[in-house]
Design a protein around this nucleic acid. Structure first.
Lengths: 194, 194
DNA sequence: GTCTATAGAAAGATAGAC
DNA sequence: GTCTATCTTTCTATAGAC
């Protein structure tokens, strides 16, 4: 690969990383291209050498965020199903996740934000959600058939809802209670006969 | 009440209704004051006779949306606890809710949107969430103590998450599956011993 | 209390130098 | 490929007539 191409790729990745961090923290509309480029230590004008529009960046940033987050660690761990899924639940429904000390999951951080965008971004979100549910299905304990799918989809909704709501609440004690409640019910769900 | 004061009140309510509809559909940043005022059949300049800023309108609109939605119907119905809470779950985790054919619940429609705003709006959201959970607790079946609170808070997260995610998905069949899964698990949860 | 008109700031996107 | 400079649009908010 020529040096210039490598350089361009690295710039693009820096832009994407900045976009993930800023969009997750402030939402799509509250962040300007200028801010993203400055965060990536570049200048405004260079943006369009990498992306055709701000919307296009958003779609790629949502994918990148999902890759960074815990929700697709499935393939990389050798833990048994129970250990794996418990670790996923505990890491996801966690204060470090809410405060972005661990990489933010776009399904929770950008849920209503993506709902307001064009089809392109919503399709990306849909695909990531499907992947998340499928992965949990594959790892589910006490599997049978449809009931497991039911449980895993509802579990995904609870995890996403718990983090999305927890991020809004101004009452710190309530956030702790919410996260703990969701973790408890979630763990109960996966132990149930499916 | 003098006629002018009544007139002003009605204008303010029209502005609030427009704000609820447009913010819920497009999000805070995608909607301009001009659009809200036109939707309320008024002109741009008149806005500041009613609200000090766009943020202030948002806070009031979130309250108004919660009052319109199903989540505070508790005091108005005489149905027994089981009937009431089942009806709430079925009405909330419903396609008519997602498409805003029934009044949108701000907890689901504005979750990550509110997370990006100032403390004032987030405190309003927090209060509404508390009220929602408390109401469900009061109506819970097979009550005991802490375990019920756990269940109801996790249930709230699942309901909010289910609607928030369902609103994004571009795959209609998947939306149906998601809503049905959440309804099934939710009904199962409230029938559990608490 | 509501209107028209406009100030002032910031955004997305483009043009052209190097 | 990245820079500076700028076009054009759109926004919040204010001023002043009625």
């Amino acid at each position: 690969m020529p040096l210039s191409k490598d350089h361009k790729q690295r710039s693009k990745q820096r832009i994407l990383d900045s976009a993930v961090a800023l969009f997750s923290k402030y939402g799509f509309n509250k962040v300007s291209i200028n801010e993203i480029m400055e965060h990536a230590q570049l200048t405004r004008g260079g943006f369009y050498a990498h992306f055709g529009s701000k919307e296009e960046l958003y779609a790629e940033a949502v994918i990148k965020a999902s890759q960074n987050s815990k929700i697709f660690e499935a393939n990389e761990t050798l833990a048994c199903d129970r250990e794996f899924i418990q670790a996923l639940i505990n890491g996801y429904l966690n204060k470090n996740h809410i405060s972005q000390k661990s990489p933010p999951c776009p399904l929770a951080f950008l849920a209503t934000d993506v709902a307001n965008e064009e089809k392109q971004v919503r399709e990306v979100y849909t695909k990531i959600f499907k992947g998340f549910v499928n992965m949990m299905n594959a790892r589910a304990i006490n599997k049978t058939t449809t009931k497991t799918e039911n449980q895993m989809m509802a579990l995904a909704a609870m995890m996403i809802g718990g983090v999305a709501v927890g991020r809004v609440l101004t009452d710190n004690k309530l956030v702790d209670e919410l996260l703990e409640s969701c973790r408890n019910i979630a763990i109960g769900l996966i132990e149930q006969e499916g």
